[in-house]
């Protein structure tokens, strides 16, 4: 028996999300009196792999096949299934990100394992295996039992703390046999976002809505974000109007994020917008309408015009940062 977590890498590196996954896997393993194992596919150096041991995994399996550098859902499913069976995994953990969402459902069918998607806390119980998860886009939560002997969980980013339990984890580097013609995905081009903090990784997010009035008014918002080391985001009308790129759209149909701090500037706070940001630890709202629904979701608010308030927030942050 084991808890197996698949850890993705970004150009050979792991990130906070990875350590959240291994921390979570180790805790679940502890609840089940078993061990946690991490599975990494791709080009990752031993120094980077060793970092996983710090968070309690007992073994790190590293699959080094060159042909697995780009994600092919069928090939990855085959490889992860083979290892899950070999290691007797009864819980398989992935991130609830693009890659996790691509693989978890295929693995579910292959292993006949029920899926609990986007969990943000440890299972409520092991027998029966029950998880707590968001439903109706955050308008409710469910206690979900997974009845199959193998269970798959996907963990929401920024929802689980890092827990250091140093371990001398053994690293096993292996190459696997892939069936000829299994890989069908041809990656023709990759466009990476460079030099900017990723919205989904950011601990602080500064987001603007229609109350910003024009795409020309984003200067102080970007400045505030830069000073705070934050990512920028926007509401749906703003991305629909083309004021900001659609990658910045946060909300139910856009990105779902859970930063420590979310600034909603000139955003009224429609249900669909709140659905994308309600897991933020703190929400700050600036809006001219004191009855705007965003103030129901916010812990701190200012009733006022973004154009007038933002430069003063920039000044205040500049001051504390200079101290």
């Amino acid at each position: 028996m084991s808890v197996l977590t698949f850890v993705e890498n970004w150009d050979g590196k792991f990130k906070k999300l990875t350590f959240e996954l291994v921390s979570y896997a180790s805790k679940v393993a502890e609840m089940m009196n078993t061990t946690a194992i991490a599975l990494s596919i791709g080009n990752v150096q031993p120094e980077e792999l060793e970092k996983l041991g710090k968070y309690g995994v007992k073994k790190i399996i590293h699959i080094a096949n060159e042909e697995l550098l780009a994600l092919d859902n069928q090939a990855y499913t085959s490889v992860i299934t083979e290892l899950a069976v070999k290691e007797g995994a009864t819980v398989l953990l992935l991130a609830n990100n693009n890659t996790g969402k691509a693989l978890a459902p295929r693995l579910s069918v292959r292993l006949k394992a029920g899926v609990g998607s986007g969990v943000s806390q440890l299972p409520l119980s092991i027998d029966p295996f029950m998880v707590y998860k968001k439903v109706y886009s955050g308008r409710a939560f469910a206690h979900l039992t997974i009845k199959s002997p193998v269970r798959i969980l996907t963990l929401a980013q920024n929802s689980f703390e890092l827990i250091e339990t140093p371990n001398d984890a053994a690293i096993e580097t292996i190459t696997v046999q892939l069936e000829n013609g299994l890989i069908k995905t041809v990656v023709k081009d990759v466009q990476k976002q460079t030099g900017k903090i990723l919205l989904t990784d950011a601990e602080i997010v500064v987001s603007g809505g229609r109350g910003m009035k024009s795409p020309d008014n984003w200067g102080p918002l970007v400045e505030l974000a830069d000073l705070l080391g934050a990512a920028t985001a926007c509401s749906r009308p703003v991305s629909d109007e083309g004021w900001r790129p659609h990658e910045e759209h946060t909300g139910q149909t856009g990105k779902i994020i859970a930063p420590n701090l979310y600034f909603a500037i000139g955003i009224s706070g429609a249900t669909q917008h709140i659905a994308g940001v309600s897991a933020s630890k703190f929400i700050v709202a600036v809006n001219t309408d004191k009855d705007a629904p965003v103030f129901e979701a916010a812990q701190y608010g200012i009733v006022g015009d973004a154009a007038k308030i933002l430069p003063q927030l920039v000044e205040a942050v500049r001051e504390i940062k200079s101290k």
Partner: peptide
């Protein structure tokens, strides 16, 4: 993808 996009043929 996290941090970008890929053009893919299938």
């Amino acid at each position: 993808i996290d941090g970008g996009k890929e053009t893919v043929a299938i």
